[in-house]
Design a protein around this nucleic acid. Sequence first.
DNA 1: ACCTGAACACCGTTCAAGT
DNA 2: ACCTGAACACCGTTCAAGT
Lengths: 214, 214
Amino acid sequence: MIRMTSRRSDALSRERIVDATIEILDAAGEDGLTLRAVTAHLATGRGAIYHHVANKDELLAAAADGVLAGLAGDGDPRESIRALALGIFDAIDRHPWVGAQLSRDPFQPAVRRIWTGIGASLHRLGLTGKARSDAGSALVNYVLGAAAQHASGARQAPDDAARRAYLDALAADWAEQDDDPLARESAALLREHDDRAQFLAGVDIFLAGISSLN
Amino acid sequence: MIRMTSRRSDALSRERIVDATIEILDAAGEDGLTLRAVTAHLATGRGAIYHHVANKDELLAAAADGVLAGLAGDGDPRESIRALALGIFDAIDRHPWVGAQLSRDPFQPAVRRIWTGIGASLHRLGLTGKARSDAGSALVNYVLGAAAQHASGARQAPDDAARRAYLDALAADWAEQDDDPLARESAALLREHDDRAQFLAGVDIFLAGISSLN
DNA sequence: ACCTGAACACCGTTCAAGT
DNA sequence: ACCTGAACACCGTTCAAGT
């Protein structure tokens, strides 16, 4: 006969803690992630977490790395850069909290993963030395910046209707605060733009700029 | 004879609150900014702040906008984009907390200021419609991403010696975790690179890419 | 070694009471 | 209208005590 235990059937592990963290972040957002929520979800005591993870920051970094694991691309270097960038973009659509997390620490595992993927593609593109590190820095910073901005938007307007209303209100606000025609046109374009397409357009501007480096 | 009051000689105002916030952020960093620290600094009661500012988020946004006020550039459009970008970079050197704050909300006043400045320069460069908004989005996202990454570094290694030690440790860590020669070269370049020069190199890559848009 | 849960030292925000 | 400061409803982290 199988011995019945409480709700928790497995021993605690770093992996189970990180999985629970991702579930909570997806369901309740960054503000909903508390150590109390994690321990309740795992039916364990408060301090148990600290046997497997140093603190909340490490927990967030591990969760972000878990979500971004498995992004790659092996074909044409330009295509694999586009694929990597879009993979990050789509991961943020599914897990908006990742966008803010990536900007929090330049040397967390998830960011190192992005650096490595982009660096390898730039190498295959024939860039070396300072040219490669300048290009890599530019692209990584662009991707992280866009990720953070897109995530803030996704957080404040989760569905399509909310997004529509949000951008309308924002465009009206811009047009009101600034009556020069340039600001008005920018506000109008903001309402119509497609975040994902614009993100990719930025990657292509960068790739075009790279061609002028050698 | 002048009437002596307590330490506080002026009435409270939004401006005085924002100035105190900037002083506290500069002295104690983001973690040091608490409503209790602000009220202590102003010798007032806890709730007084809420008569002038909605909440802590608005206080942070107002502080960031205060630091970035007055950035402009009127000459050659490419030069004024470079000047604006460097102005932001240098402001973050003086106030590292600004870097993280700019990524927190895409529609805070400080970010709108950056959009407006870059948009006007791109207009003078002859870009219109979707081309301008794609180019603007690319540049703004790059600048904000680089700002956040640079600020994290500046926070973790305030002076030159600390920065040196920090990058050495990091390069060793990268080289250890990844033994392919590409990672080793990247780690070595990391130790030598100049953040400010690399930031400007990124701006130039995007400007070169933008030239291919029309 | 791993886990528990109470305790500690904080937070941001609200609100009745004062001026 | 503006300000005060106690009170509320939380936090992350630690640590003696258990298994």
